[in-house]
């Protein structure tokens, strides 16, 4: 199985690993089949994601996509972060093997799950804004 240089780079030197204390939004998502779990922490000021961190239990692609996803949303508005697709994460990583595409879905959904938590904490129903969080199926 071939991982791109970018994937290996983000795996070996993952950006934004860790937790944010008093995060404004925390999301966790897992894939029942492969057992992988991602936890995403967001710091949000005035609708802007000022910091993003993650913890991941999972394969190389799970770690690399978590790392890339946090990079892609940092400094962006919530609206932009909600538009982040797994395809964009895959593209930014120069592709993923077919069996590993679901790992990028996990990253996408982890971001959404953290945003959903943010809205809930604000007393706003996240469903109309974020939509449903899907545990990726293989």
């Amino acid at each position: 199985m071939m991982y791109s240089e970018k994937v290996l780079d983000h795996f070996s030197n993952p950006r934004n690993v860790g937790e944010i204390e008093n995060a404004d939004g925390v999301g966790e998502i897992g894939n029942a089949k492969c057992g992988d779990i991602m936890k995403m922490y967001l710091k949000i000021d005035n609708g802007i994601i000022t910091d993003a961190k993650f913890k991941t239990f999972g394969c190389g692609a799970a770690i690399a996509t978590s790392s890339m996803a946090t990079e892609l949303i940092k400094g962006k508005s919530i609206d932009d972060a909600l538009k982040l697709t797994n395809d964009a994460v895959v593209e930014a990583l120069d592709g993923l093997p077919a069996v590993k595409i679901h790992c990028s879905v996990l990253a996408e959904q982890a971001v959404r799950s953290a945003l959903s938590d943010y809205y809930t904490k604000q007393g706003i129903d996240p469903l109309p804004i974020v939509g449903e969080i899907k545990e990726p199926e293989e």
Binding site: M1, L8, F11, K33, D36, F57, V99
Partner: peptide, 27 residues
């Protein structure tokens, strides 16, 4: 998780396996 363990060991030059190589394509 096994795969990330193997990838990191690889960076240290250690070739190992997690389960069977034939099943690495499966989840």
């Amino acid at each position: 998780e096994g795969e990330s363990l193997l990838l990191m060991l690889d960076q240290y030059g250690i070739c190992a396996s997690s389960g069977s190589a034939c099943t690495s394509g499966s989840l």
